[in-house]
Design a protein around this nucleic acid. Structure first.
Lengths: 335, 335
DNA sequence: CTGTTAGCGCATTCAG
DNA sequence: CTGAATGCGCTAACAG
């Protein structure tokens, strides 16, 4: 172990001087600086980050809780987080929760043990165990793409999912559709409710009936899309247009529709959500809602670091703009 | 800050006893244990992980260097890494390098500063700067899915890319193909050379000519597949079968072939690599090579932790089995 | 079984 | 401008 003491001896100065030279070079003489730097070089010295952190009480790390690593939408957010964190001198601890509460608890507790300074939550749940809830009161935490409802409000970065739901619905109605199906993801989440409410509000305004048995699904996976289509096609009057609550679901739905010999969009129109990269290269390309995922990640870090530094927040809830991408998977309703 | 001292006072014992109660409860009396636990509860005490680590000299963290977060194949590996790490009490620091040397250097240096105990590299390059090379001599490091060639050999977990290249080639030749194109990813990597060598070896054995201008591409992206197809179709005698060196490339290639009015596999056969989830849901589903990505991640952690604990390695290079998945994107060559 | 003592490696007072 | 001394929060050795 090559520590600061060894360097100080090598340079013939005190450990304090070595520390100063490395952190505030302007506080020491040109002469000593050279001596110290030479010794540092010679010894191959790198300050022990653990020791520095225990002194300053800051880990300069943040934990990111994500339910699923293989979802490219989440990973795009994390790219933004990672990039912004790095620029600000933070590193990112990855917490793959797989949606399990105990894993969430474990990861979340890292910030209670000074292993991390703050937390970004990509899922919709409050990640601390009942035991830790009191301690978590003052933990810097931001939720992104979902929001967390509870006693205490946490800052969030989100899309206007309600408006996005409305936009998709208007788009399909303009094509003459009136029989809709929905294949949902995680049903207990806020974004689910927002999107659903958006869709229903337009249907209501237009006097279009929506029966609850046209809402199927319950997880953001390709298989959900497949099973969802199978269910919806069994209905007495199958839908001519299907909302999928993410692109993976839409990919599965598209696959299954084609497998059953239906054409998209001639027989059934299909919409996705997230604008995952591959969605543009499907056959047909998916009509979907683009979310500024990378930017959402970056903004989350900005907010979190303000929280960590106990700076006043400019805004506590940020709604980012979406964009409806009309591509080939939607078209006129069959006559 | 609620520290161990506060708890010891609250419980009326020494700090050492508190520490013992938490780490080795069997070393203290039932009686004191209760007192201490009560005090811990009351104070809402959580041991400061930084302090613990600076004492033991171990961070119980590992850094994972990955060139690109949005690639589901990499993320599947990282899922395995993350899961195995968690089981063994390690946390994962995410290093998105974007293939840039300076970012690699920065992340790699975390293990030189005790911020992490070891390193897993998913890219093909030695991640330390020239400056740090000497220091890195003894750094625990494993490379997975790629291998790092250089003065010093690092343990790696890899696929038999040579054999996979051969298997793909045999598969296509059995369909009667003899005019091949290749759309490559990162060309400087070892896996590129292995796969290419595998393909060429079979072609050679079968007396099939391969001209270098049938090798195009240079990055693992959808766009590469698109541009690759455009180039290959300009050749005097376009290929009837195209090897793509990952599934993203194949997705782009498939898209572009269809856009140009060609049918897959009737006009052109197409193979991918990695068996990314969506590959099975393309139209047609992609013939591809399945890599046990999750398992590769898990094994990498096993090996890394052995390295960290200076245990003798059972094996320093591990070649995992692949599986050729024959799906709809390959078929008989056009007469 | 428990308390006292001594550090881990570093940064930061405070003198000089 | 530099050095000696102190302590961050915790664990490990050693007594008792």
């Amino acid at each position: 172990m090559t520590n600061i003491k060894k360097v100080s001896e090598l340079a013939g100065v005190s450990t304090a001087t070595v520390s100063r030279t490395l952190k505030n070079p302007e506080l020491v003489t040109e002469n000593t600086r050279e001596k110290v730097m030479k010794a540092v070089q010679l010894a191959g010295y790198r300050p022990n980050w653990l020791a520095t952190s225990v002194k300053t009480g800051k880990s300069n790390s943040i934990v990111v809780l994500v339910p699923n690593l293989v979802n490219p939408f989440f990973m795009r957010i994390i790219e933004g987080i990672e990039q912004a964190a790095q620029e600000k001198g933070y590193s990112v601890l990855l917490g793959d929760t797989q949606g399990k509460a105990n894993r969430e608890n474990e990861y979340a507790s890292m910030v209670l043990t000074n292993r991390a300074d703050g937390l970004i939550q990509l899922d919709h749940s409050f990640p601390f165990s009942a035991n830790d809830a009191a301690l978590a009161e003052k933990v810097p935490m931001v939720s992104v793409c979902e929001r967390i409802e509870g006693e205490r409000r946490y800052p969030f970065i989100e899309l206007d999912n309600y408006a996005a739901g409305r936009a998709l619905t208007h788009h399909l109605i303009s094509y003459g559709h009136s029989r809709f199906g929905i294949i949902a993801g995680q049903r207990t989440s806020q974004i689910h409710h927002d999107r659903l409410a958006g869709i229903k509000s337009v249907l209501n305004e237009e006097g279009i009936d929506f029966s609850e048995d046209m809402l199927v699904g319950g997880s953001y996976r390709i298989e959900t899309g497949i099973e969802g289509v199978q269910e919806l096609l069994k209905r007495d009057t199958p839908p001519t247009a299907i909302f999928c609550f993410n692109d993976d679901i839409a990919i599965g739905a598209l696959y299954e529709l084609k497998r059953q010999g239906l054409r998209v969009p001639e027989d059934v129109s299909l919409t996705g959500f997230d604008n995952v990269k591959v969605s543009a290269y499907m056959d047909p390309p998916l009509t979907t809602v683009d979310q500024p995922a990378y930017e959402m990640g970056r903004r989350a870090v900005d907010v979190l670091i303000q929280l960590i530094n106990r700076q006043p927040l400019s805004r506590t809830r940020e709604i980012l703009p979406f964009q409806l991408l009309e591509r080939g998977s939607t078209g006129p309703a069959k006559a």
